[in-house]
């Protein structure tokens, strides 16, 4: 009976997760356009992919966005958690305020920040009207910095979650350790860097994996905030896949691009899984 009840799970695991992934990888070696067709072309799609400027821009954007959002999320998340961990009053209020953007969708996030960063009405306009007439801050209309405009919105939405996870990690640290550090006269910042952070390694690893797998999926935020523009300056891989598959009817190319995304995720996930299982065996 248990097996019959678990049929939806077994079907999902085998048909969608394993089957679907294999199917996409296999058909990335075909020249499918409007419909999937099994005419093999070897690595042609990949060759074309890496010769497409739009894909290269997408990858560059993902790298910049990824590295920045990884560093800033971890640093901001940890600092905020450390501040909230000082036995302060109104901790719940602060936490509620910092976490609420996480409840909002990327579409909503993207549209709000599109409005705030609007050069004619938003931040740039305000600073100019205060008297600094040459002030320039229009990330969404400047090809060189547009990805940072998206980063601002992404960080606003996601840092709350990282903070909550870090806070849980900090609370898990034995109070005795703090006392011992104080008795030895170690300054607080040193205790954090040399004792507490190394002890929180598991929390850092999970948040890292979480942020990394979220970064690869960035799609709605870009669609809402810039639609990939100006020009193609803020394209990302997930959007490239969607556009080639569903708007340009170039399935093979979309499969190749999504297979590259899968590869990127595998590079992050496999070492992590290895570490997890490795440490579990030792326990």
């Amino acid at each position: 009976m248990a097996k019959i009840a678990a049929i939806p799970m077994i079907l999902t695991a085998l048909c969608v997760f394993v089957g679907g992934t294999l199917w996409t990888v296999v058909y990335s070696f075909t020249s499918s356009r409007l419909l999937p067709k099994a005419n093999w072309v070897g690595l042609d799609q990949y060759e074309r992919l890496w010769n497409t400027n739009r894909w290269i821009v997408s990858i560059e954007n993902l790298m910049i966005y990824g590295i920045c959002s990884l560093i800033f999320s971890l640093v901001i998340g940890f600092v905020l958690a450390a501040l909230l961990d000082q036995k302060i009053r109104f901790e719940n209020t602060f936490r509620t305020i910092i976490l609420y953007p996480f409840a909002l969708s990327f579409i909503v996030t993207g549209l709000v920040w599109q409005w705030i960063l609007n050069p004619d009405f938003g931040v740039q306009n305000i600073v100019r009207s205060l008297g600094w007439a040459s002030f320039e801050f229009d990330p969404l209309y400047n090809q060189d910095i547009v990805i940072y405009g998206i980063l601002i919105a992404g960080l606003w939405q996601g840092t709350g979650l990282i903070m909550v996870l870090m806070l849980a990690g900090l609370r898990g640290i034995d109070q005795e350790i703090w006392k011992a550090a104080r008795v030895d006269g170690i300054p607080t910042w040193k205790t954090y860097i040399f004792i507490v952070i190394p002890m929180m390694r598991p929390v850092f690893v999970t948040t890292l994996v979480l942020i990394a797998s979220g970064i690869v999926r960035v799609f709605d935020l870009v669609v809402a905030q810039t639609s990939g523009g100006p020009g193609i300056a803020s394209e990302v891989p997930a959007k490239y896949v969607y556009d080639t598959m569903f708007l340009r009817q170039n399935l093979g190319q979309g499969f190749a691009a999504s297979t590259m995304m899968l590869l990127a995720v595998a590079i992050v996930i496999i070492p992590w899984a290895y570490l997890e299982f490795g440490s579990r065996k030792r326990d």
């Binding site: 997760f17 679907g20 997930a238 896949v241 995304m261």
Partner: peptide
């Protein structure tokens, strides 16, 4: 099956969209 399911959570959605 459970392990596959958990790993499945990390596969980018784009990979499974068309299947």
């Amino acid at each position: 099956f459970f392990t596959i399911l958990i790993f499945g959570a990390f596969i980018p959605y784009q990979v499974m969209l068309y299947p």
